[in-house]
Design a protein around this nucleic acid. Structure first.
Length: 244
DNA sequence: TCCAATGTTTCGCC
DNA sequence: GGGCGAAACATTGG
């Protein structure tokens, strides 16, 4: 179950499939799979919460949504929504949405906003939110995949706590230095998240996500939906400042 | 058994 | 058209 780092984690597991030739694609997803037939996987990439299988003239995007999962050389009882078969192995996706794109990923997506890509450009993100999203709450902005590609609810909550910013603060009210620090924190935490995945300890290493009290001063946390995004948000009312 | 959840799209209704 | 809310999704874990 996926935020950006979980997808990178999956991509890393699939490295040996680069250069391999797909013998068949299957699954109940509506995407036309007829072009994926005895062709070579040129590359496997990510963009935020999307996993891409790159072929010569097109690529396939896989999105796991909230319930999706991937198995290599194993199957669940239910049918896969998408699967790639090889002579001696297979990759199966469950409850995944797929989309076939012409061209290459960089034709369609701006890598500067992807928190886990080499091309990530924090200054570009800062500029974008200070130009066009000043009236929005930072808690909402963080989930905007066009601005913070790959950020999910856990990264959002944990980053705001670490940066000591209340999610209901409007972008225009947050000092620039604080925004810069938040943007750095998001990226640093995303890499920590990726590391935690190796030992399946994302939740136990979280500071306030799904917790009751602030680890710093034992203040009772607030846990409710905030902003426009209907997602449960955890906040320490003492540590996190509401800028206004 | 029930409920919520690391997500996004679609649909119906103003 | 836009904005908003609810539903949907071959799920899963507490």
């Amino acid at each position: 179950m996926p935020e950006g780092p979980s997808i990178v984690f999956l991509k890393n597991k699939l490295q040996r499939f680069k250069g391999q030739t797909v013998s068949e694609a299957s699954g109940y997803s509506e995407m036309d799979k007829s072009a994926i037939d005895h062709i070579k996987i040129m590359d496997i990439e990510t963009y935020g919460k999307n996993l891409f299988f790159v072929f010569k003239d097109f690529f396939v995007g896989v999105h796991l949504g909230l319930f999706g999962s991937m198995l290599v050389n194993k199957r669940k009882k239910v049918n896969a929504s998408f699967a790639l078969h090889f002579p001696h192995s297979e990759i199966n996706f469950y409850v995944a949405k797929t989309h076939l794109y012409q061209g290459k990923p960089s034709d369609h997506f701006n890598f500067k906003t992807d928190i886990l890509k080499k091309e990530y450009d924090g200054e570009f993100v800062l500029k974008s939110i200070r130009e066009d999203h000043t009236e929005e709450m930072i808690g909402d902005v963080l989930l905007d995949q066009k601005l913070f590609t790959g950020v999910g609810n856990i990264i959002r909550i944990e980053s705001l706590y670490r940066a000591k910013i209340h999610p209901d603060s409007l972008v225009k009210d947050i000092p620039e230095k604080k925004l810069v620090y938040l943007i750095e924190t998001v990226v640093n935490y995303a890499y920590e998240f990726l590391d935690f995945l190796k030992n399946d300890e994302v939740k136990e290493k979280a500071l306030i996500y799904e917790k009751k009290i602030c680890p710093k001063d034992k203040t009772e946390l607030i846990a409710e939906e905030m902003g426009k995004v209907h997602r449960k948000t955890y906040v320490c009312p003492k540590c996190q400042k509401l800028y206004s």
